[in-house]
Each structure stands twice: as structure tokens, then as C-alpha cells.
């Protein structure tokens, strides 16, 4: 069944600062959606709210009509940056931990991805380069069989070879009926794999459109379109 993620009237403040204001968004089907916006626009906050990791927001988030937090968490695989895991742990330890914590963790799928991305199971987290660490995060995230995947800036600070490999694994291993949200502030490299884009600007959803529709209507690349949206604001300021 196609997944529907519905966000209604979501408001979130942190230290009296508005992070998200009246965000409503409905995403459905087996799509890959790009969540774009400047650093600090609220992309990570929105993902954490969807994943149920950030609390005290007003508004509702439902998956297939269900707003129960525990149910939602079991339907979402979020690209956790592994901040809570001791850096002296080896990749194999982290994998075992995931396998134990998540009943939907598919070891076989993980092994395929790890070998495609050339992850060395014996390496310790502290020894991983930024690119390798991100490859591990992607493998762990996609190895879970869920309805929704949230990838928070999987490409930031990563060399282009690693980026291509990660993009390739997303195409290969994203389950056919799942919905995927990828956040990024740098669009051009992932633009060809996006079905839709959502642009967050001034703590609101400024645009939600099909990527090919933007190309068809504006004759612009996704990157130019995205930049022009921010450019206009600068002129008005």
C-alpha cells in the first residue's frame, strides 16, 4: 500500500524563536522528496518532528492516518548520526546493535549495501572518514524495512565519489512502496533522483512541487529555481 505522510498545522518554537510556523504538508506514494532550505531553515527540526524525536510541537503528524507516536516510530527509519554510540565501537558492533533494537532490520540487505559501499566491519567509529561514516549511516537506515525513510543531509561534506555511491544505493535499495524524504541545502547532485521538492523558507513551506513540473513550467534547473526563490527575498530585504 502506498504510504501517506500528513503534517497539519505544525508549529514549533525553541527559546521563543519560531522554527516552524503553520507547516502543513501531505506526501504520498512511493516517492523521493527533496527537502530543501538554507542552513537553519528548520529542515532538521521538521525531520525530527516527523520522526518523533523532537517534542512539544503543536499540530499533528500522521502516517496512513495514524498519529500514535509509537506506531509512527515503527514506520519510520531516520538517518541517526550515531551520536549516542561510543566512538571506540566497531562497525560490526553498531550493526549488531541495530539488528537487536529494530525487528525490521534486514541483515542480508545490510550486508549487500555494506559490500557495495566497501565498509570494513572491523573499523572503529573513531577511525571513519566523514564519507565512510555517512555510508554506514545510509546502510543502517536503509536496512530497516519501513514505510518512511528520512535522510537528513546525507551528502554534506562528502566527496563526489562517495556521494555518487550513496545516491546509487538509494536507487537500488529504497523499497519500492516506501516514501523517502532527503534534506539538503545543495541540490544539483540529487536533483535527477527527486520526484518532488519541498522548500522551507522563513519557517514555512514555500514550495511543494513535482521536480519535472518545475523544469517543464519554468525551463529552469531545480538549483536555479531554488536559488531564485531565495534571491527574491534578498532584493526585498
Amino acid at each position: 500500500m502506498a504510504t501517506t505522510l500528513k503534517i497539519e498545522q505544525l508549529n514549533y518554537r525553541k527559546n521563543l524563536k519560531k522554527i516552524l510556523t503553520d507547516v502543513s504538508l501531505s506526501l504520498s506514494g512511493n516517492k523521493i522528496v527533496g527537502l530543501l532550505g538554507e542552513n537553519g531553515a528548520g529542515k532538521t527540526t521538521l525531520m525530527r518532528l516527523i520522526a518523533g524525536l523532537a517534542k512539544n510541537a503543536r499540530g499533528t503528524v500522521t502516517i496512513n492516518g495514524d498519529s500514535n507516536l509509537a506506531n509512527r516510530k515503527s514506520l519510520i527509519s531516520y538517518s541517526d548520526p550515531l551520536g549516542g554510540i561510543a566512538t571506540n565501537k566497531r562497525i560490526s558492533d553498531v550493526k549488531q546493535f541495530y539488528s537487536r533494537v529494530y525487528p525490521d532490520f534486514d541483515e542480508q540487505k545490510y550486508t549487500q549495501m555494506a559490500s557495495f559501499l566497501k565498509l570494513d566491519e572491523s573499523q572503529r567509529l573513531s577511525a571513519l572518514s566523514k564519507g565512510t561514516r555517512e555510508k554506514l549511516v545510509i546502510s543502517l537506515t536503509l536496512a530497516r524495512q519501513t514505510s518512511v525513510y528520512l535522510l537528513d543531509e546525507p551528502f554534506s561534506g562528502i566527496d563526489s565519489m562517495s556521494r555518487k555511491k550513496i545516491i546509487n544505493s538509494i536507487i537500488q535499495w529504497k523499497p519500492a512502496d516506501s516514501l523517502m524524504l532527503i534534506s539538503d541545502h545543495y541540490v544539483s547532485e540529487i536533483a535527477p533522483i527527486l520526484d518532488e521538492i519541498v522548500i522551507i523558507k522563513d519557517d514555512k513551506v514555500a514550495v511543494h512541487k513535482a521536480a519535472d513540473e518545475i523544469r517543464e513550467e519554468s525551463g529552469q534547473s531545480i538549483e536555479d529555481y531554488y536559488e531564485s526563490l531565495y534571491g527574491e527575498a534578498d532584493i526585498n530585504d
Partner: peptide, 17 residues
Amino acid sequence: IRQLAVSMTVNVNTVQR
């Protein structure tokens, strides 16, 4: 379809369309 998507580095849905 998925193989075409991988070889062209595009989305499965776009190949489908």
C-alpha cells in the same frame, strides 16, 4: 525498471513515467 534507474542514476518513478 530498477536496473534502468540505477544505470541512468534516476528515480524509478521517473523511468516508469
